[in-house]
């Protein structure tokens, strides 16, 4: 009894040290953003004397922040919708045809090929291709992101589809449902746990992605995402780091708020599909 109590205390202590490591940088970011440049020069650690909002005003000035925020929302939402429309349907067709059709087997392995191809190999040709097609804008990036998410999505969905029983869809076919009806009414709802995993992984990646926007969208500030906004903000205001930290705060804010409210769903969703296979 005594032994387990002291071990619980030890665990609390270790976990709290870790929490300190996680909180401290975020805490410093927040207090720095609220201090005047003069206060920051005096001490990096001191608590702000008054909650000075000038830095945040500076970030919001000119509307660049809101534009970047809406671009990021637009891109992330469209990629998630596109992924939901295309990937589960394709995976269903593949998983139910692969055993009898060689073509679908080839398609399946062709779609998985990309797992082994690192982004750098296609990065530069992609920029060329997108500029030929006049697609160097957020909507073009949406198309790119959907294509880039194919391999992982198909891999996870097909594996999951193999693990769920086929009795229900067979019953639907016997009752005279068409293939499309069976897919939308029976299979699609069954895919929910894996869909949560795929879409959360995708959403986090696209929301936070830096390299793809950097090579496709950096040419005009109209197209900037939040990651590009703060990166360019840092370059522009490198001297005034109070203001830069306010920009970091504002960039983290949307995803942190989202996380606070959806925390259970995000963590549950990421593991629900992942552990099964």
């Amino acid at each position: 009894m005594n032994h387990s109590k002291s071990s619980a205390v030890l665990r609390h202590i270790l976990l709290l040290i870790g929490v300190g490591f996680i909180i401290l940088p975020l805490y410093m970011t927040i207090i720095t953003a609220f201090k005047t440049p003069a206060e920051n020069m005096a001490s990096f650690f001191a608590f702000p004397q008054s909650f000075n909002l000038e830095n945040f005003k500076g970030v919001l000035e000119g509307g660049g922040y809101f534009r970047a925020f809406f671009n990021t929302v637009y891109i992330t939402a469209l990629v998630i919708l596109g992924n939901m429309a295309i990937m589960p349907a394709m995976s269903y067709a593949i998983s139910r045809s692969m055993d009898t059709s060689r073509i679908y087997r080839i398609v399946y392995y062709f779609l998985l090929l990309g797992i082994f191809i690192p982004f750098e190999v296609k990065m530069m040709p992609l920029v060329k291709l997108m500029s030929w097609l006049h697609l160097l804008h957020p909507t073009g990036l949406v198309i790119l992101c959907i294509s880039s998410s194919t391999c992982e999505a198909v891999f996870l969905y097909v594996g999951f589809l193999y693990s769920i029983p086929k009795e229900m869809e067979e019953a639907a076919y016997i009752d005279g449902a068409t293939t499309l009806q069976t897919y939308t009414k029976v299979v699609f709802p069954l895919l929910k746990p894996m869909m949560a995993t795929v879409l959360i992984r995708n959403g986090l990646w696209i929301w936070n992605d830096f390299m793809l926007p950097l090579v496709t969208l950096n040419r005009s500030d109209k197209f900037w995402t939040l990651t590009l906004f703060q990166y360019n903000f840092r370059t522009e205001y490198s001297v005034d780091y109070s203001r830069t930290f306010a920009a970091f705060c504002m960039s983290m804010l949307p995803i942190l708020v989202f996380y606070v409210f959806m925390q259970k769903n995000i963590i549950g969703g990421l593991t629900s599909g992942a552990v099964k296979s």
Binding site: V107, S147, T179, Y183
Partner: peptide, 19 residues
Amino acid sequence: TFALMTLPGLLLYSAFFIF
């Protein structure tokens, strides 16, 4: 139906990933 379900994804992937 299966072919139509597969085609859009396959085309996107071929054009913007493999190409």
